[in-house]
Design a protein around this nucleic acid. Structure first.
Lengths: 225, 225
DNA sequence: ACCTGAACACCGTTCAAGT
DNA sequence: ACCTGAACACCGTTCAAGT
């Protein structure tokens, strides 16, 4: 009698990625090692080499998982094509959310080459298609899509790699003595204060809207190499 | 008789950073190890710990060097304040140039926390000041500066970490079978072709101009948290 | 004050050997 | 087919010891 699923017959690749993401969230990227992953699923490190080519291969799958879990693919298009700004806004917020959902998510995806490229290409392709419908030229649609994605990318990397509270403290102390005009100094401090009140999502959205406004008037502009 | 500079009296911190950057350019970030750096300047690895707290400390200095060597500080302001768009354009191009001047430059600077934050803060402060002169509100000037910087950041990371020629090949092959509508497929391919003809600098500039156009109309808009 | 030698705990990876 | 045990070359880092 063959009992199906007797005792989890073999090591599932999905379980490996799941364990890796759990370690990532709990302890950060530098603790995602093959030995830690293996230990988490009750196996020895070399066992992973049966299912994955190497660590890079695992990283690729982690990146895919991070970008795939948020349903960025087949993002529901707007009823009215003229609402593409809102559609793009929502999609880019979703992309950011996917990246910040995991600790060091930006760095993980940045570390993946093939997996990142593939996932980002799909998103880019979606934006490309919709912007063309909205009246963008071929090249402009492609450029617009990558511009928006690059912005998200940079924002998240900065957001996650940015100085923690303790580093901010040290920074401020160094600047107190260094920075030239103390009047403007306090003005910038006040702005930083505002930043915190707004929250990252709002700051992110401000820049995103700037880009979208710019895109509206760049729909069919000439591109000069 | 004290001969000055007899035989390079002691190990100079600058020489360490210089050696590190040389290894970086020649062999990439993963080969920048303490032992390799030490070997390059004819010393043993533990010797570095006399001059630097740890490897992170060296990374911070590398980031500083990368961002400082390009003269991003005290970037000459425009004769006419209304020319702030060109000024900002030039500054951002210079920032990109500084980052891509070294192999993996983006990742090095991303890996630095204190050093990056300090250098970027200075650039941000400069932009902040000039945009205020150009009539931006306090908060808008700050948001505008960080938006522009984030874009540069994302573009360069993508530019440097992006798939190399061999990965692009594999990507295309995978997409040939996967991607849904082959008509649109070829359109996107044509766009990618255009990208190459334009070159990275032109693609970068297109997105940058989009942002600047958006900034012009966001000078004094309300910010909603 | 500045550097070496030797060691420690930890990597990713390989490979013969087990089942 | 799938996994272990042991080893290899390499990390960053510490520290006693040399000069």
């Amino acid at each position: 009698m063959k009992s199906k699923k007797a005792k989890t017959p073999h090591l599932q690749p999905d379980a490996v990625i799941k364990a890796a993401l759990e370690i990532l969230d709990a302890e950060g990227l530098e603790n995602v090692t093959l030995r830690r992953i293996a230990a988490k699923i009750g196996v020895q490190a070399p066992a992973l080499y049966w299912h994955f080519k190497n660590k890079q291969d695992i990283t690729e799958d982690m990146a895919q998982a991070i970008l795939t879990n948020a349903k960025l693919d087949n993002f529901p298009p707007p009823a009215n094509i003229d609402d593409w700004p809102k559609w793009l806004t929502d999609l880019m917020h979703q992309l950011r959310n996917a990246l910040i959902a995991h600790k060091d998510g930006g760095r993980v995806v940045a570390g993946a080459s093939f997996g990142r490229a593939q996932a980002l290409e799909r998103i880019l392709f979606q934006i490309f298609k919709l912007l063309k419908q909205a009246g963008f030229g071929d090249l402009q649609a492609g450029l617009a899509a990558s511009t928006a994605i690059d912005y998200v990318w940079g924002f998240v990397i900065e957001e996650q790699a940015g100085p923690g509270p303790e580093e901010l403290m040290a920074l401020q102390q160094k600047f107190r003595t260094e920075r030239i005009p103390s009047e403007e100094n306090t003005v910038l401090d006040a702005v930083m204060e505002q930043y915190h009140k707004l929250g990252n999502a709002a700051v992110f959205d401000w820049g995103l809207q700037v880009i979208i406004i710019g895109l509206k008037s760049a729909k069919n502009t000439q591109v000069n190499g």
